[in-house]
Amino acid sequence: MVEPGGEYEIRFGPTLKGLGALVVGLIGCASCALPSGMTGIPIWFRVIFGILIGAATAGTLITMFSRRVALRIDANGITLTTGPLFPKSGLLFAAWPEVEAIVLWKQPSANNMPYIGIRRRHDIQKSKPAAHWKRIIALAGAPHIPSDLAAHSHQINGWRLDRARLTEAVGHFAPEVEIIEID
């Protein structure tokens, strides 16, 4: 139950999916360090692959242990952020008067990656223009999602969404805002 004045906040942290990615990344890095005679893979390919997989593994580690806020619902509105590698570019805030609905959806082309998005009221000017690249990704990977919704969405990745607490917090701070699930 959300207490009066209480907010719902989720931080990035270790998840089963993140730990799996970390293990795969560490195995990939270790395989690049094996002598060429054991693998038969050219050294130049192992160096490039090692750098790429090492960077991805480092990004996963940084995200898992940053403890940065991923989602916050309070009296002011809803705040969504991306991981710590791109802190300012991924900040998305909407005050409650701007919010028509909170939409939970999945991107089928990305193994049903879950997303949370903000559907803004049509009569209110958007506070921050949506990134053009998000619209392109949405059209390619989730054609069933309107591009303006996709542009104001973030992946639920590196943190867990508690739908019951989400419903309680939204009901407490903005009972007129719907929570919609799109399959």
Rank of each mutant, 00 (worst) to 15 (best):
I48L: 15
V24Q: 04
G20W: 03
A70R: 04
T82M: 06
V23K: 03
T57M: 03
L61V: 13
G25H: 07
F49H: 04
W96G: 00
V47W: 04
V99T: 08
I180T: 11
E168F: 06
W96R: 00
M38S: 10
A55G: 09
G13I: 02
I51L: 14
L166T: 08
V103L: 03
I136M: 11
P84W: 00
G18E: 10
R68A: 03
V99A: 02
G141W: 09
K126V: 10
A75D: 15
A58D: 07
G20L: 10
F86A: 12
A95Q: 13
A21D: 01
V69M: 04
G50F: 05
A142L: 07
W159F: 15
L19G: 03
H154T: 09
M64C: 01
A150I: 10
A130D: 13
A30T: 08
S36Q: 11
G83L: 04
A169Q: 02
V47K: 04
V170M: 08
F65R: 01
I10E: 15
I180A: 09
E100M: 03
A94N: 01
E176C: 03
N157K: 06
G5M: 10
A140F: 11
R72W: 04
L34I: 07
I10F: 03
L16V: 14
H144M: 12
S153Q: 10
H172Y: 15
E181S: 13
L161F: 13
A164W: 11
A101G: 07
V103M: 03
W96F: 12
W159G: 00
A21V: 05
S31G: 07
A151K: 02
G83A: 08
V170S: 06
T57Y: 03
L71Q: 02
I136T: 13
